[in-house]
């Protein structure tokens, strides 16, 4: 029995001709946040479905907290809390009823279920809305309810499937991130899937980049970002001529030769804010001033570009094994 919280060993899963997981290997240390980072259709959700015992792997071995997902699935289910991608809540039940139902179904006992619901509603800022039907909740509130529900039975592993992909405003997203950080502080292991490098970077201590059903790179956020295009500073000047002159003086500051497109100059820098100050000084010294200036942080696309030489967008929308499929009934 391994000490890892989650193990995937050469796990394969096909849906017809579509290979969702192509021999994926993974190991998550207990008490950490682990991010599965990858584009839509990479197999992230299929991996989650295997780990939550919803889907059986065709081949390979998967364990959660030492229990096999196929042979000890009941054990696994009692140890995990899943917050799925779609924030599927019982619309006609109140927030409190949603939590109590899960409490009953996770066999907490009525008293404990009631207590836990009250604590979680309070903790996630839902106490005031607790007795309103969930269909009246905003997107952020639904997300928090889904997360609260995943925590009802105090699972040792919490799985968050693309927690912020579906339209969350920045404030709700930050709140969610804070909650995840607090969970880990309590000793819970968190496995998170995301399409956003920023999210993985913010939360995870270890990231696995997934593509076409396998892990193509794994490491700490720092390790992954080290191989990736650094921050890009984008400046636009009044004329293409001014742009070219600016590029000349900026060249020594850029990690790679600056690109010029019309009046817009892009330079890459490892220290974004520092580079902005230096770049402004340099252009000011030759009497130029940019009309606009922006910073672009590296994205999943940049990671993919550096790892695979191609952007992260899937060549075609995956039909069946897609990450965003709620149901894939056996036969079609």
């Amino acid at each position: 029995m391994s000490a890892a919280a989650v193990v995937l060993e050469n796990v394969e899963k096909r849906f017809g001709d579509v290979v969702a997981l192509d021999g994926i290997d993974l190991e998550v240390r207990p008490g950490t946040v682990f991010a599965l980072l990858g584009p839509n259709g990479a197999g992230k959700t299929t991996a989650v479905r295997v780990l939550t015992t919803i889907t059986r792997p065709d081949r390979g071995r998967a364990t959660v907290l030492g229990y096999d997902v196929v042979h000890q699935s009941a054990r696994v289910r009692s140890q995990i809390g899943l917050a799925g991608q779609y924030a599927a809540v019982d619309e006609n039940l109140t927030g409190r009823e949603n939590l109590r139902l899960i409490g009953r179904l996770t066999h907490l006992g009525r008293g404990t279920a009631n207590e836990r619901s009250a604590v979680l509603l309070d903790r996630f800022g839902l106490a005031a809305a607790a007795d309103r039907p969930a269909r009246t909740y905003s997107g952020g509130m639904r997300r928090r309810l889904v997360l609260a529900r995943a925590l009802m039975h105090e699972p040792r592993l919490v799985i968050l499937d693309e927690p912020t992909t579906t339209g969350l405003d920045p404030r709700s997203r930050n709140e969610l991130w804070d909650i995840v950080r607090a969970l880990v502080a309590d000793g819970v292991t968190v496995l998170l899937t995301t399409q956003y490098l920023e999210e993985a970077d913010q939360l995870a201590s270890e990231i696995a980049v997934v593509d076409h059903g396998r892990v193509i790179a794994q490491g700490t956020p720092e390790e992954l970002k080290a191989g990736v295009a650094p921050t890009t500073v984008v400046m636009t000047f009044d004329s293409p001529d001014a742009g070219r002159r600016a590029a000349d003086v900026l060249a020594p500051l850029s990690a790679s030769p600056p690109t010029v497109e019309g009046a817009t100059v892009e330079l890459s820098a490892h220290d974004g804010p520092g580079a902005v100050i230096e770049a402004l000084r340099a252009v000011d010294a030759v009497g130029l001033a940019p009309s606009t200036l922006s910073l672009r942080e590296p994205t999943l696309d940049d990671v993919f570009l550096s790892l695979t030489g191609r952007p992260a967008a899937p060549e075609q929308p995956p039909a069946d094994a897609s990450d965003d499929l709620v149901r894939t009934g056996g036969g079609r």
Partner: peptide, 15 residues
């Protein structure tokens, strides 16, 4: 329930 992902949620519970 299937379409809304609620069944999937039930399937991940120890029920």
């Amino acid at each position: 329930d299937l379409g809304k992902g609620l069944i999937e949620r039930f399937r991940s519970l120890p029920m």
